Simulated scan of single mutants.
Amino acid sequence: MAGGLVALLDDIAAIAKLAAASLDDVAAASAKAGSKAVGVVIDDTAVTPRYVTGLSPARELPIIWKIALGSLRNKLLFLLPAALLLSAFAPWAITPILMMGGAYLCFEASEKILEAFTGGHHDEAAAEITDPKQLEDRQVSGAIRTDLILSGEIMAIALAELADQSLVNQAIALALVGVAITVGVYGVVALIVKMDDIGLALAQREGAGAQAFGRGLVSAMPVILKALGIIGTVAMLWVGGQIIVHGLEHFHLTPLPEWIHHASLGARETLPAIGPVAEWVVYAALSAVVGIVIGGVIVGLLHFKPKKH
């Protein structure tokens, strides 16, 4: 998926060059900035399918479309102007805002883990919703809210790669990155959630091979969607944890970031055959541990504080 997104950004760059030579720098910057954000894009793709799990199959694509539009609105109407304004007038505020967003992701993931172990629901009013439209609206709003945090990280990473560009070029490049990544993410999400329909279509075709593959796909999809739900929760933890760790490093609170960095480099040196993968896995795992600690503290403060009589 990462390669497909980078290729998509490269296509956008090519179109920009044909349209006007003056946009060469913007196109190149867009491709560079987009490729740097691919790691968060993968997390975004893993998180989103859980918001359509359990809803009517007929509503899956319309729901994804609503979330995709909300994601574009997040990026183009809110995050892009905010990023440019903060970059120009209050660059010191970007990291604290990202850290608050990271803490929210950790909180959301920790809530999901608490629910899995207790069988409860942190939002009792939402748990009692029986009207399909209200449930759909709640799922869409929750997905767009989570997307806002992940998109904020994507735009911040992209903006960091555009520091040498003019304000106009930054705006154009961020818009290109936002559109391309949204199309890539939600195109893949739509494909994932409709794989069972693809399996049914294959099962009805002539040919034993196609039928067997189609039936296998249909049987596997509940397991795949459940696994994606787990991956999505873990992704929220490691992305949120990474944001916190990077923020601590930015403010020169380095003991924890340095320990995580050294541990991940140690994994790379210990397993040279899969060095980059080992480094990423250890860094992500330790960031997730930071995320569960931060999220657990917030959940504890909100759920177990003394009630007023």
Rank of each mutant, 00 (worst) to 15 (best):
A2P: 06
G4E: 10
L5R: 02
V6H: 05
L9M: 06
A13F: 07
S22L: 10
L23P: 02
D24K: 13
A29I: 07
S30W: 05
S30A: 15
A33R: 08
K36L: 14
V40S: 03
V41F: 02
D44A: 04
P62D: 10
I64Y: 02
K66I: 04
K66N: 07
L69V: 10
G70W: 11
S71E: 09
L80R: 01
L80G: 00
L84W: 13
L86I: 14
S87P: 03
W92S: 11
I94K: 08
T95N: 03
L98T: 02
M100T: 14
A103T: 14
Y104K: 01
Y104G: 04
L105C: 04
C106V: 06
E111V: 15
L114C: 04
E115F: 12
H121I: 10
E124H: 13
A125T: 12
A125Y: 02
E128W: 10
T130Q: 00
Q134P: 01
Q139S: 14
S141M: 14
S141C: 07
D147A: 09
I154R: 06
M155K: 08
A156C: 06
A160Q: 07
A160C: 11
E161R: 15
N169E: 08
N169K: 12
L176C: 11
L176S: 11
L176Y: 08
V179W: 03
V179S: 09
G184F: 06
G187P: 02
V188I: 08
I198D: 10
G199N: 04
L200S: 06
A201H: 08
Q204C: 03
G209S: 03
S219K: 14
A220H: 07
P222D: 13
I224W: 07
I224G: 03
K226W: 12
G229H: 08
V234K: 01
A235V: 10
V239N: 11
V239H: 04
Q242N: 08
V245R: 01
H246E: 15
L248R: 11
E249R: 15
P255F: 09
A263V: 07
S264V: 02
A267W: 00
E269D: 15
E269M: 15
T270K: 14
L271N: 04
A273Q: 12
A273N: 09
G275R: 07
P276E: 10
E279C: 13
E279R: 11
Y283R: 15
Y283K: 14
A284L: 06
S287I: 05
A288T: 06
A288D: 09
A288W: 01
I294K: 00
G295H: 06
V299C: 09
G300M: 10
L302I: 13
H303Q: 15
K308M: 12
